[in-house]
Design a protein around this nucleic acid. Structure first.
Length: 433
RNA sequence: GGAGAGAUGGCUGAGUGGCCGAAAGCGACGGUUUGCUAAACCGUUAUACGGGUUAAACCGUAUCGGGGGUUCGAAUCCCCCUCUCUCCGCCA
């Protein structure tokens, strides 16, 4: 959520930054200002009335104590009217405030001024690349072909169980998935300084609002109903990413400055309705309704936000380096960034069988946008309460990593080469043909 | 799912209609004393919103799990919800 004070004090700056996203949100600022102005005017009035009522009520108390009952009764009558007007004005304030906040909750974060201007993914600048596209003597196979030949994933039966977009990993496929999860968690906890947490997979609505998924993207989530009780709908959701629960761990808290930075990593499956992505577009594992992911979350002091973002990107890159996978890091331009983010770097790994790069990580600094929504603050040494920067990044998404790994390391004999760092986890140096 | 108990400031815990934004203790912070440490003593110690100010000072409003009600006035009375604990049932 944007700071209402910032909107009040620098409306043109806010409009300009929103306009950079190219979604037309800057048009809503006038209405926010108008509602905010109405709210404050009504608030001043109602607070004056309340002050008056409090004053008279105290006098009544004093009179009652002195047994001057008649005078007390007279004053009671006087304040009854004030009470009625307060009720009306209170309601008015609440309504205007709700209207204002409904807009504020749907306004995206302001892009950092250093983010490249652009309209779409086509304008995302590449920051760097690592490694090279591997050479193959024959045309490399797609992961779909490899999975079927090596029986790593049973696509047909996955769909039988849960519909299209759901995967049934089998045998070496299941073991590889599990090995990757373990490898990633160990890497981030033992080498990158993250504290592992294991969050619930079904999460409350507030978590979704806190990270900015809701209210704007409610159509993308799987909602959960408890048994046959339809009243429970709208309360719990399958998590779309571990970011949602983990970033909310300290919601409504005031942390001590010395607690920062907090760095969490978490494995979770991720559930995405992908509404509007008809047929998911791609065959195989690239766009599915459920996938595994190891997520990185940081809560840091504002002045450390961007240094920590760079480190986080580096932590995700390390995964691909250890697995010997070629990738590039791109910065998302203003028009391509996510709702809550002020700056985002994506890591795209090369998938030879697809002849394309796949997004396996997206690292963002949301600055204080999410902290504000979830009322998460820290107290500085000077005793001031401030909102921390909240960062999230994939470290990394699994299904696509799986794809890149088997497509990159497929061997002429039909087996899959397993990179050294992963072998202790899979307890094998290759997946046999 | 059934029965009961509870939720108060950083923590413990008092408070059953006005003198309560809230006793007391602990902790923390500042100071005095002190060879050092400890102890003792004094003081300070929530948050948000709004007004005000160059900025402060200052003023007001709200907040005792959340929401609603009664009342001139609610931490306190009534209703609903959430969560925690204990016992029973069921269960991986």
């Amino acid at each position: 959520m944007l700071d209402i004070k910032l909107i009040r004090e620098q409306p043109d700056h806010v409009r300009e930054r929103l306009a950079a996203r190219g979604a037309g949100d800057e048009a809503k600022i006038s209405e926010v200002l108008n509602l905010d102005d109405q709210r404050r005017k009504a608030l001043v009035e109602v607070e004056q009335l309340k002050a008056e009522r409090n004053k008279v009520s105290k006098e009544i108390g004093a009179l009652m104590g002195q047994k001057k009952l008649e005078e007390a009764e007279a004053k009671k009558k006087q304040t009854r009217d004030i009470g009625d007007r307060i009720t009306v004005l209170d309601k008015q304030v609440a309504e205007v405030e709700a209207a204002r906040d409904a807009i504020l909750l749907r306004l995206p974060n302001l892009p950092h001024t250093k983010v490249a201007l652009g309209k779409s993914a086509a304008e995302n600048p590449t920051v760097r690349t690592w490694g090279n596209k591997p050479a193959f003597s024959a045309k490399p196979k797609s992961h779909v072909e490899l999975c079927e030949q090596l029986k790593l994933v049973d696509f047909a039966r996955g769909a039988k169980l849960s519909g299209s977009g759901f995967l049934l990993y089998t045998n070496w496929g299941a073991r590889l998935e599990r090995a990757l999860i373990q490898f990633l968690l160990d890497l981030h906890t033992t080498e990158h300084g993250y504290t592992e947490v294991a969050p619930p997979y079904i999460i409350g609505r507030e978590c979704m609002v806190g990270v900015g998924q809701f209210p704007k993207f409610e159509d993308q989530a799987y909602a959960v109903q408890e048994g046959l009780d339809k009243d429970t709908m709208g309360k719990l959701y399958l998590l779309p990413t571990a970011e949602a629960p983990v970033a909310n761990i300290h919601r409504d808290e005031i942390l001590k400055e010395t607690q920062l930075p907090i760095r969490y990593c978490a494995y979770s499956p991720c559930f995405r309705a992908e509404a509007g992505a008809a047929g998911l577009g791609t065959r195989g594992m690239i766009r599915v309704h459920q996938f595994d992911k190891v997520e990185l979350i940081k809560l840091v002091k504002p002045e450390d936000g961007y240094a920590e973002l760079d480190k986080m990107v580096g932590n995700a890159e390390r995964v691909l380096q250890l697995l010997g996978l070629h990738y590039k890091v791109i910065q998302l331009c203003t028009g391509d960034m996510g709702f809550a983010s002020a700056m985002t770097f994506d890591i795209e790994v090369w998938a030879p069988g697809q002849d394309q790069y796949l997004e396996v990580s997206s690292c963002s600094n949301c600055e204080d946008f999410q902290a504000r929504r979830m009322n998460l603050r820290f107290k500085t040494e000077a005793g001031e309460n401030k909102f921390p920067h909240i960062l999230n990044g994939s470290g990394t998404a699994l299904a696509r990593l799986f794809v890149a790994l088997i497509e990159t390391h497929q061997q002429p004999d039909g087996s899959i080469y397993i990179p050294e760092p992963l072998r202790p986890y899979l307890k094998a140096d290759k997946i046999p043909a």
